[in-house]
Amino acid sequence: MIRALMIALLLAAPAMAQERLKVSAVAYPLAWMAEGIGGDLVEVTFPVPADADPAFWRPNIAAIAAFQQSDVILLNGAGFADWTAKASLPRRALTDTSAGITDRLIETEAITHSHGDDDPHSHAATATFLWLDPAMAQAQADAVHHALSRRMSAGQETLDAGHAEVTASLTALTAQAEAIAASHGGTRLLASHPRYQYLARAARLEVTAVSWASDAVPDADQIAELSALQQQTGAAIMLWEETPPDAAIEAVAALGLTSVLVPTLANRPETGDYATVLAEALARLSAALAE
């Protein structure tokens, strides 16, 4: 009885003391969801530097210690931010936001390697940018709502209202993706990086990706590779995760490809938020497809 009381007090402590629930996220969209759902009840931390890729960011000891102090740690799952698999994080705080949708994850090319003289073996790889499919993002938002609700002893109405707002935004994005699917489903596109698997599935597009650094001008070999892919697919649009140099845009334009900026949103955008930036990107894509 005493133990149960102590647990209840521990769980209720943040709300009782009018302290905000400390939430940490490994990807920006998860932070956006937590901010939207939790509102003033939560203090959301997304510690990845603006110039770092959250998928490959390596936190130092102090940053991991800060994560350990969180009441809720939002993971993307699907192997995203694999530093979390090599760090000691309190299990009571962890929430894998894709745990309930593992059957909807997209497998990618397996990574093969060997240890010493052993036979080579493969690790299955999974596409990680789930939130580019608004329907997948909705499932993640539901998981965030559930995690916050479990941790908060008060303020459920606030959480429910925030969840409803986030859901409305995601529903609008889903409608945009479905509209693209309805009018341009099956269209083939090229991408500068293999990160659009979920967006492609949501909008029923076929995206073939190269692996270019988005801030560099492609060299002749890369242009030749892209040209071959363009001829093979008949694609007329090239997706970029960041605004490329003008020379890069001109180089792909010479192949007959229209450049369209579709940020992957793993990190916090300079302006706007997940919903507005993705909505703008989908609008740009829709307009480019209509041309």
């Binding site: 210690a65 994080l89 309190p90």
Partner: peptide
């Protein structure tokens, strides 16, 4: 074990830091 064990037992670090990365 996991970090939750330290909370359950009320274990306090007297010197250094707690478990942070693989191998600690």
């Amino acid at each position: 074990t996991s970090l939750d064990y330290f909370d359950l037992r009320g274990l306090r670090i007297a010197d250094g830091r707690g478990l942070t990365v693989l191998g600690d």
